[in-house]
Amino acid sequence: MKAIILAVLPLLGLAGGSGFAAWQIKSGSSTLSIENGPWQTAENIGSADASLQTRAVIALRGLLALPDSEAIYYNAVKDSDGQMLNGNCTYHIKGGTLAARWWSVTAYGKDNYLIPNRSGYYSAGSGAFSADQQSDWTIAVGADNVAGPGLPWIPVAKGQPFDLTLRAYHAEDSLLANRSSAALPTIERQECSA
């Protein structure tokens, strides 16, 4: 009996190591290691220079992502107070000028696909604001249109968790070199319903 246990233990180790890796890839845990407020990102996304873990997670959750020279991607699963994003609440994303040619924020469901909604809106970004508004803007996020006049709205599913991706195309050096400290939008929770 003891001999069988000793022989089976390495197989359990193999299964455990494989399972832990699969869980890390699926959850994205600890791979987007650069934090900036509620946003997380990694270096060398889409590149052979990325770490083994980053490459595996990006393959599953961001296949065919652009390399840093073209775009950088931030992801948020929590608001600025550390609460998980959920479609039972509404949020205001507030920010200023981003050092990039173009940027946008998109909401995704837990399945990593765009969230079905009647309006057909999935994102909002620099294209939604005039030159005067680029330095001080607000985007509303919620299951219902809580944006108000002139405020872009990203719909999400009521009661469902979601996450946000901030894309910055042709980011300037000031953003590329300061991913953890550059000024990024805040995600402020507004009202929640049961």
Binding site: A22, A56, A59
Partner: peptide, 25 residues
Amino acid sequence: SIVLTVIAAIIGYFGVMALAPGYIM
């Protein structure tokens, strides 16, 4: 057995990480 278990866990972890991109692609 314990040493082999640890080695097997490491092989399993890095094996899955290394093979995942090619499989998903």
